[in-house]
Computed example of a mutant assay.
Amino acid sequence: MSTSELEQHPPPAEMAAPHRYELVLPPGWVRIPLREGTKEALEKILFSHMGQVPEGIPRDDAMRFRLDMRRQLEKQARAARRNGGLDLYLPVLPRGGIFLMASFIVAEMPIDQGHPVPPEAVITQLIDDGVPNGAATKVDVAGAPALRRDYRHTLDEEELLTRRVDYVIPVANDPGRWISINFSTPGDGDVDSEFTGVLVDLFDAVVSTFKWSYA
């Protein structure tokens, strides 16, 4: 299980806000904290979890592979932190001799309404706004209404088409605060393939374990 603390804000008088969220991760996936401890987490991943390398890479090139992977992870972590990221999650062990190209980010998401608005109304407005190249639906996360967006997106710098799934979740008992859980994968090169669909289903299963912690 992965846990991560939220920044502390004065809670409403009638009920305390959660201190952190929790997720159950699939085997081989890890959490990289983005606010503090990022360097230490990367060191642990690269020299502990990544004892294996993909098939076809000679043993003599294993260290170079790890260093290249570190640069990629650091790049992802910096970009996620700039966008309000709290944690970066990704698979670090190969499955069937290959590394899955997938990740998701948990981030704070300011939704400034100017005055208190019920979460259901915000979600309805976001659904009405639509999603280019995709769809938005109302779902239930941790016993409360949330938003799920499923769409296709092209990374401009790489011209790589990816499948994206975002969840937008109101922070319990803390009006006006939201977090997002943002998943991205190119799948097997076909964002509509059965393999890509399996990765999306895996992410949805992870989000189904999401819960708030008040300890």
Rank of each mutant, 00 (worst) to 15 (best):
A79G: 04
D156T: 11
S184V: 09
T3W: 03
N133C: 03
A142E: 07
N133I: 04
D61P: 03
R163Q: 10
D174W: 06
I111Q: 00
W178P: 05
R95S: 13
R149D: 00
Q125Y: 02
T137K: 11
E108W: 00
L90F: 07
Y214R: 05
I98A: 12
R64Y: 14
V171L: 14
G143R: 03
S213I: 10
E40D: 13
A80L: 02
T154N: 08
V92H: 08
K44R: 15
M15C: 11
R177M: 10
R70E: 15
P186N: 06
A62G: 06
Q76R: 14
M101E: 10
G51V: 02
V141Q: 03
Y89C: 05
G96F: 02
Q113D: 02
M63H: 05
D129G: 01
P170M: 11
L100A: 05
A13E: 14
R148Q: 15
T196L: 06
L34K: 14
L34Q: 09
L73G: 06
G85L: 00
E55S: 13
P110D: 01
P186D: 14
G143P: 13
H9Y: 15
L93V: 15
I111M: 09
Y21I: 05
V198R: 15
M109I: 01
W178L: 11
E194V: 13
R81E: 14
F65Q: 15
P91T: 04
I32K: 09
Q52G: 06
A17K: 13
K138I: 00
R20L: 02
D140V: 11
P54Q: 11
A135C: 08
Q72E: 13
W212P: 01
A13N: 05
G176D: 05
D190Y: 04
T154D: 01
V168G: 06
I45S: 08
A135S: 09
P11C: 14
G84N: 07
H9V: 13
K44E: 08
E22M: 13
M50A: 07
I105C: 03
V24L: 06
I179R: 00
R152S: 14
V198P: 00
Q113A: 13
S213H: 13
Y151F: 14
P175R: 13
P116W: 07
P110S: 04
P175E: 15
T196S: 10
L161R: 07
P170E: 03
E5V: 11
I105W: 01
A215G: 15
E7S: 15
I111N: 05
L160A: 07
P186I: 10
K44A: 12
R20V: 02
A80T: 04
R64E: 11
